[in-house]
Simulated scan of single mutants.
Amino acid sequence: MTIYIPFGDPFREPLLIIEALLMVLTFQLGIIYVRKFLKTRSNYTILAWGGLLCAYSVVYILYIIADYYAQTIDLRAFILSISYLIGVFGAFFFSYNTEREIKVKTHFFSLIMLSFLSFLILNMFISILDPIIITILTWLFFIILVVIYIKRFTSKTPEKKWRINVYSLVIGIVLMIVGFGGVADIAVSSFGGLWVRVLGNFLMIGGMILISALFIGVPSLAEFDWAQKIRILNIIHINGVSIARYSFGEEAEDGKNRIDDLLMAGGLMSISQVISNLIKSDKKLDFVDHGDVKLLLEHGKYLINVLVADESLEILRTKLKTFTEQIEFIYEDNLVEWDGDLEQFKFLDAIVKANFQD
């Protein structure tokens, strides 16, 4: 975006309005992403997108200054050099957090982005190469990283709605890339003028809206390792008496009640006591953070089920809710006036396996 658009040009005001809108939209969506991450601190890809969008909102501001208000070639070149630097920094921030999310220990793409960033800083003082070339290379590696993320995501996700979100995300990214190319000098010069830039801006707005609307619904990759996160499931009647307890993973292998020790250390004598306190209160607690372990509670009509896990995951919350509804539907007659007879729940093991074994 290096073409100066002078006063009096018929495209000046429409383009300025559209690109200012694009800048504001980019910044707002970036803030939404960052705030979403700060609430959960569980999906670093959300933080990656937030940082990238905030960085490119600054890039758009600099583009506007360079293309509409900078009247000397040297000044415009300097402003654009800074914009390229910030854009590549956004790509580096995105790469680092995405690789952190998908657990790439070498941070291969982050190191590449960092080398591009270092080169651009050096290039500002010693002109070696047109910075737009480095920016294009950055976008190429950015695309490769996004493809890797999407491939890894779609190979693991069991949810159709999540797959649809990811594929739609791809469409949004394509629109962003095509739109960004449409506002470049070569596109404007080759395809007949500034109307190409107008079209490119609209494509970027559409792609950004599509990416943001759908990516918010894409969960962390940690959701797909949910089976390894579960430790203990407690099924407790509303009278405070435990119906059953199931151990998973290391808890099942060790045969030791290590979780209760952790709860005791924190002042929670047992899960049953916690439930008893909840029964006396009008407010229903659905989550307890106890450092290394998390307690997810699901309140039914007759049961309060407690899932002890390493992380509080959306998929675990959904499974716990479904499990509670299934048990209360199947054993409703037994649970209404339960007398403590555990033999009534002979199919409970099968229901637990169906819901909590990967």
Rank of each mutant, 00 (worst) to 15 (best):
A91D: 09
F92A: 03
F92Y: 13
F93I: 12
F93C: 02
F94K: 02
F94V: 04
Y96E: 12
Y96F: 14
N97A: 08
N97Y: 14
N97I: 00
T98Q: 08
E99I: 07
E99A: 04
R100C: 04
R100N: 15
R100V: 10
E101A: 09
E101G: 06
E101H: 03
E101Y: 05
E101W: 06
I102F: 11
V104F: 11
V104C: 04
K105M: 10
K105N: 13
K105L: 09
T106D: 12
H107C: 01
F108T: 11
F108A: 07
S110V: 01
L111N: 11
L111P: 00
L111V: 07
L111S: 11
I112S: 04
I112Q: 02
I112C: 03
M113P: 01
M113H: 13
M113T: 06
L114P: 03
L114F: 14
L114A: 14
S115K: 01
S115L: 13
S115D: 02
S115N: 07
S115E: 02
F116W: 01
F116H: 00
F119T: 13
L120C: 07
I121G: 01
I121R: 00
L122Q: 04
L122E: 01
N123E: 09
F125W: 10
F125M: 04
F125H: 05
I126F: 12
S127M: 05
I128V: 15
L129T: 12
L129C: 08
L129I: 15
L129Y: 11
D130R: 09
D130F: 05
I132H: 08
I133Y: 12
I133E: 01
I133R: 09
I133L: 11
I134W: 02
I134K: 00
T135K: 08
T135C: 05
T135H: 14
T135E: 10
L137W: 12
T138V: 05
T138A: 14
T138P: 00
T138E: 01
W139L: 14
L140S: 09
L140Y: 10
F141M: 05
F141S: 03
F141E: 04
F142H: 06
F142T: 05
F142V: 04
F142K: 03
F142R: 03
I143T: 15
I143H: 02
I144S: 12
I144F: 14
L145H: 04
L145T: 01
L145A: 05
L145D: 01
V146P: 00
V147T: 08
V147L: 07
Y149T: 01
Y149K: 02
I150E: 10
I150M: 12
I150W: 12
K151P: 01
R152C: 05
F153P: 04
F153C: 02
F153E: 07
S155T: 13
S155A: 15
S155M: 14
K156Y: 08
K156I: 08
K156W: 01
T157L: 08
T157H: 05
P158D: 06
E159K: 15
E159C: 05
K160A: 13
K160G: 03
K161D: 11
R163V: 10
R163P: 04
R163G: 09
I164T: 11
N165M: 13
N165S: 12
N165P: 03
N165Y: 13
N165F: 11
V166E: 11
Y167G: 10
Y167R: 11
Y167I: 10
Y167C: 10
L169F: 15
L169K: 00
L169G: 15
